[in-house]
Design a protein around this nucleic acid. Sequence first.
DNA 1: CTGTAAATGCAAATCATTTGCATTTGACTT
DNA 2: AAGTCAAATGCAAATGATTTGCATTTACAG
Lengths: 146, 146
Amino acid sequence: MDNTSRVTTALRECHLKVTKHRVNVLKILIRAQKPLSADAIYHLLMTDRQSIDLSTIYRILETLAEKELVIKVTFENEVKNLYEYNHQIHHHFLICLSCNQITKVESCPLRDYEELVSEKMKFRVIGHKLEFYGYCEDCQKKQKYS
Amino acid sequence: MDNTSRVTTALRECHLKVTKHRVNVLKILIRAQKPLSADAIYHLLMTDRQSIDLSTIYRILETLAEKELVIKVTFENEVKNLYEYNHQIHHHFLICLSCNQITKVESCPLRDYEELVSEKMKFRVIGHKLEFYGYCEDCQKKQKYS
DNA sequence: CTGTAAATGCAAATCATTTGCATTTGACTT
DNA sequence: AAGTCAAATGCAAATGATTTGCATTTACAG
């Protein structure tokens, strides 16, 4: 199944109208494999000769986030909100302090700890967010020679 | 040592002028024991009959963050940036999905995992940010009866 | 194929944060 | 204690991301 039909099916399952723009936005997020800003999506669509208004992108992202087809995330030192396709697989990110590149890490060490926190703090944990900040391989190399 | 002299000393050590506003902002952040928005600080000062401009608060927070006397943090679903006093003790937060209240947790399970990530992903980890989302004790009680 | 509610485009509003500039102030010097 | 000056502040306006109101277009149920 290609992305177009995958996305079309997903929209139908959520009782959302299948519009050209919604399909395009979702396909871009799937291809990106990382969170994108509304603005970044806008420019990708423009490059692809697709005409769309930025406010429409914001509305689409809001709708898709409500239906949990996409996840809205915010990062430190990043003014804009970012949106990622929801693959339903729990993961975290590495954020390079030098080039700001975002990389996904699919393992997670926290399931046990969640229980501990729940008990000790009397806080019912529903989920968590974990990010590692540091330097990616490329930036580490560059730093050696500067 | 009271907070006023603690804060005055901290500012001097950072070669920053000791101004009434800087002292007030730092004392508010110490008392709060959790991150506050520029706006929240503004209203606390106003309630305390202290006249200050919001832009001054932003400039103070920026300066204090540069010197690492405060830490700037952002949370999901929170439009504003928040600032917390830097106690130099590594910690994380519990964020209640119902009342949005933020609670500190001082333990951390991630030191070992950081090394694992460093090796496997060839990413030099400098630090991390971890937040737990769920329901605080009060909101859990309220949910039972609603 | 048609009617209708939902989606979109466009312009303007909103809200957090930043900036330019005139004035005030902390702290060093004398 | 008064003089000096760069840094800090207040005020008004700018900026940039996001949201909203409203007129028009479109998806899709019947």
